[in-house]
Every structure is written in C-alpha cells, then in structure tokens.
Simulated assay, not measured.
Amino acid sequence: MKKTYHGSCHCKTVRFECDVDLDAGTSKCNCSLCAKTRYWKAFIGGDDLRMIAGADNLTEYQFGGKNITHFFCKTCGVKPFGRGDLEIMGGVFYGLNLSVLDDLSPEELAAAPLQYQDGLHDNWGEVPTEIRHL
C-alpha cells in the first residue's frame, strides 16, 4: 500500500513529497553510479513525486544509454532521485533514493523487500555475482 513520505537533500534546499509502496520492493544495483554511491532505491510512478521546493537547484547528469536523468542538489550534491521514461516501466518513473526520505523509519526500510540487479552488465533481470558491497 502506498504511503506518503517527505524527502530532502542534505542542505534541505530540495524538498519533495512522494507516494511509495515499500511492499512492492526496493533495489540496489551494481552499475558504476549506484555502486559508488550505495544507492538504495524504490521505483515510483511519474505522478507519485511532487516537488515542494528547490526544483531550480537540481542539476542533471546522464551516462551510459542515457535512459535515466539523475538529479543532484547543486548546493550539497545529494541525489534525491532519477527520472526515466521507459515503456517497460510503464512510462515516466522515478528511481527514488530511499535514504533521503526524512520520515522513513529504519524499521520500515529494513522490512522492505530488497532485490539486487546486475546493472553493470545491463542484465537487469539477474542478481550480480557479488552483492555484499552494495
């Protein structure tokens, strides 16, 4: 079931609210960006994220196939989310950084189902050989 959470970057310039169903699962992948930042994410629909403040303080970054635009706060550098538009994902979606949700309890996060993806080899349906570092 979806629950509304509030998120922000470290300096609180970027703020948003979002509707997330943690029971639908969370994920970590081993792509070059996620592995370097230890990015733990949940995917949400395009209408499930609403900016409250700081949209003008976000900068964009793309790499690889450029299917996802990664957003970072220009002031503190925190990545609150990435946005993509892929048919396989149902259109517009966000890869939400769960660590920026201010009102997500450690207990809720620990209880959420977690999957691992081999993004490093563009083999998203497979679990990487090594996951302990993710």
Rank of each mutant, 00 (worst) to 15 (best):
K3M: 07
H6Y: 11
C9K: 05
H10E: 10
H10T: 09
C11K: 02
C11F: 01
C11R: 03
C11L: 06
K12S: 12
K12A: 14
K12C: 13
T13A: 15
V14T: 03
R15P: 07
R15F: 07
R15L: 14
V20A: 03
V20F: 02
V20C: 05
D21F: 05
L22H: 00
D23M: 14
D23Y: 08
A24W: 08
G25I: 01
T26H: 04
S32K: 11
L33H: 09
C34H: 06
R38H: 15
A42N: 03
A42T: 04
G45E: 13
D47Y: 06
R50Y: 09
R50D: 12
M51S: 05
I52P: 07
I52H: 05
I52G: 05
I52M: 08
G54L: 08
G54A: 13
A55D: 10
A55T: 10
A55R: 14
D56N: 12
D56Q: 11
D56P: 03
T59S: 09
E60K: 15
Y61R: 12
G65W: 06
K66D: 12
K66Y: 06
T69M: 08
T69C: 09
T69W: 07
F71H: 15
F72H: 07
K74F: 08
K74Q: 12
T75M: 08
T75R: 07
C76L: 13
G77M: 10
V78T: 11
F81W: 14
G82Q: 06
G84Y: 04
D85N: 15
D85V: 09
D85I: 12
D85H: 09
L86E: 10
L86F: 07
G90I: 06
G90M: 09
F93R: 02
F93V: 03
Y94I: 03
Y94D: 01
Y94E: 01
L96P: 02
N97F: 00
L98E: 03
L98W: 01
L98C: 01
V100F: 00
S105T: 15
E107K: 02
A110E: 02
A111K: 04
A112W: 00
L114Q: 06
L114G: 13
L114F: 12
Y116M: 12
Q117A: 14
L120P: 08
H121V: 05
H121Q: 06
D122M: 13
D122W: 13
N123V: 13
G125Y: 07
E126G: 11
T129A: 15
H133D: 12
